[in-house]
């Protein structure tokens, strides 16, 4: 990279991609994979989401990616779903492979939020 223009170009391109505005992906799923998330079991959740999205044939439409600490230790493992054209996000908490599979089918594929697993409906 030689100039600020190069930097700005990468910025605009990636911004559109992760904000789901360039038509590449319809949904973005980010899994909290800091040390606390991983020790609470985020890895199998991440792997399951990847596998499910693949086997449902949604790999072209949905990006499953990792992120750092979302900041809510006692709810780990956590992942969040962003959708193109929609404000906000959905936060799924206390996940495991089984629940992740259900969210993949219900929410990622069919577009129905699985309320019982979201942050507001989960009792600790």
């Amino acid at each position: 990279m030689k100039s600020l223009e190069d930097l700005a170009e990468i910025r605009e391109r990636t911004k559109a991609l992760i904000q789901l505005k360039d038509g590449t992906y319809e949904k973005r799923v980010v899994v909290g994979m800091a040390t606390c998330g991983i020790s609470a079991g985020a890895r199998p959740v991440f792997d399951t989401l990847k596998e499910e999205v693949e086997s449902l044939g949604l790999s072209d439409k949905i990006e499953v990616t990792q992120t750092g600490c979302i900041g809510i230790c006692q709810f780990e493992p956590v992942f969040e779903v962003y959708e193109a054209g929609k404000e906000g996000k959905v936060t799924y908490v206390k996940m495991d492979a089984e629940k992740a599979k259900k969210v993949a089918e219900e929410h990622l594929k069919n577009g129905n939020i699985v309320y019982e697993y979201t942050i507001g409906y989960t009792k600790l």
């Binding site: 600020l4 910025r11 391109r13 990636t14 911004k15 992120t67 750092g68 600490c69």
Partner: peptide
């Protein structure tokens, strides 16, 4: 300080740049 934590993929520099990184 935590603005990007939990939002971007820390292993992809492009995502950091998307959040005005290195500007």
């Amino acid at each position: 300080a935590l603005r990007n934590c939990g939002i971007i993929n820390p292993e992809k520099i492009d995502e950091y740049i998307a959040m005005d990184g290195y500007m």
